[in-house]
């Protein structure tokens, strides 16, 4: 076969291959947004992270503002230490509350940030003080079953 024909088809092949890769990266995958944007990290300790995963979204008012970049165990506090990578476009007050919520039926968990009213803003490396861990179903059922017993106890204590 002619050299020029071969070159032409190989060119078509390589361009189509790169096109397929770009399609996978941009249309199918989520390359963009947070991989390139400027971010800052803050920490938060939770008494329980439940099923939270690294790369889970961080949402505020339902909008994704960042991602969970690491989950570790703090051996001094005996709590989970979660590192959040937040888009630098969004600033939050220092008294922001972080809580672990569940979205959808499949139970994907995310970190919800609720802004407080403080004038000072969170800087990189800060730690969120107000946190609420994941709700553990067994504890919830436990509360439900024994909840009435506790209430009786407090009532009787108040009577005495």
């Amino acid at each position: 076969m002619q050299r020029a024909t071969i070159d032409f088809w190989v060119g078509v092949f390589v361009v189509a291959g790169i096109g397929a890769l770009l399609f996978l990266a941009l249309r199918v995958g989520n390359m963009g947004a947070f991989d390139r944007a400027e971010t800052y990290t803050v920490k938060a300790t939770f008494n329980n992270v439940g099923g939270l995963k690294v790369r889970a979204p961080v949402k505020s008012a339902g909008v994704v503002v960042g991602r969970v970049s690491a989950i570790g165990f703090d051996p001094e506090l005996y709590e989970a230490s979660v590192t959040l990578r937040i888009d630098a476009r969004y600033r939050f007050p220092v008294d922001t509350t972080a809580s672990i919520m569940t979205s959808g039926l499949l139970g994907e968990q995310y970190v919800a940030l609720e802004a407080g009213g403080d004038d000072r803003m969170l800087a990189a490396g800060d730690t969120l003080r107000l946190t609420q861990g994941a709700v553990v179903l067994e504890n919830l059922i436990g509360h439900f079953i024994y909840g009435r017993g506790d209430a009786d106890k407090t009532n009787s204590a108040a009577e005495h």
């Binding site: 890769l21 996978l24 990266a25 249309r27 199918v28 995958g29 989520n30 390359m31 991989d35 790369r55």
Partner: peptide
């Protein structure tokens, strides 16, 4: 498309496939 984009990660999925 949007659920696909939310679930498929470029580095974890696409790059590992490559």
């Amino acid at each position: 498309w949007s659920q696909m984009q939310a679930a498929v990660d470029f580095r974890e999925d696409v790059l590992n496939g490559v």
